[in-house]
Nucleic acid binder design. Sequence first.
DNA 1: GCCAGGATCGTCT
DNA 2: GACGATCCTGGCG
Length: 195
Amino acid sequence: MGLPASFYDRSVHEVAPDLVGCTLRVGPTAGVIVETEAYDVNDPACHAYVGRTPRNEGLFGAPGRAYVYLSYGIHSLLNAVAEPEGDAAAVLIRALEPIEGVEVMRERRGIEKVEDLCSGPGKLTQALDVGLDLNGADLTHPPFEIEPRAGDWRSVDLVAGPRIGITKAVDLPWRHSAAGNRFVSRPRPEVQPWS
DNA sequence: GCCAGGATCGTCT
DNA sequence: GACGATCCTGGCG
């Protein structure tokens, strides 16, 4: 059974670390989430900071939906919308450890190295075939499925670090990574105890 | 291995 | 008209 919509109906700062170690499945491909970033409406780096626009409409939507947008005109980035409807907040999925459909990912990415298949927000959307057409889609229904932590991921050590690729509020330690995991995106997080 | 720079286009000013 | 929640390549050591 996948995570219910109520899982996302909390503070984005609880949802973001809790998503690390969960399994994200899209069609025939799946991976364990090893890195996330939290964005909320009081955050200058958040798209919704400037107010509600047609582009960021999805950020204000119901929890448990996908917010997909185009970055740098090239890359689709996947977010999980959190907090009650009307509150703009989302968790950016930054990196996965591939576990299913690796050959399909290799074909889509055009590379062989498993470590490079999903080690970045723009890479994993290509590997999982997540495009703008899935903006607003329900993460609790196919083709999406997000499963709770299981097996060795039951207890995962987290490190929090500054966020990446943004120019505002970069010092907020809202990036959550699985400690020591080699599939996290680069540059690597600065090791800071998160409590 | 590390760093600098280009690609590329939707969105907002 | 400028700028990104990025990725990839090429140059250099």
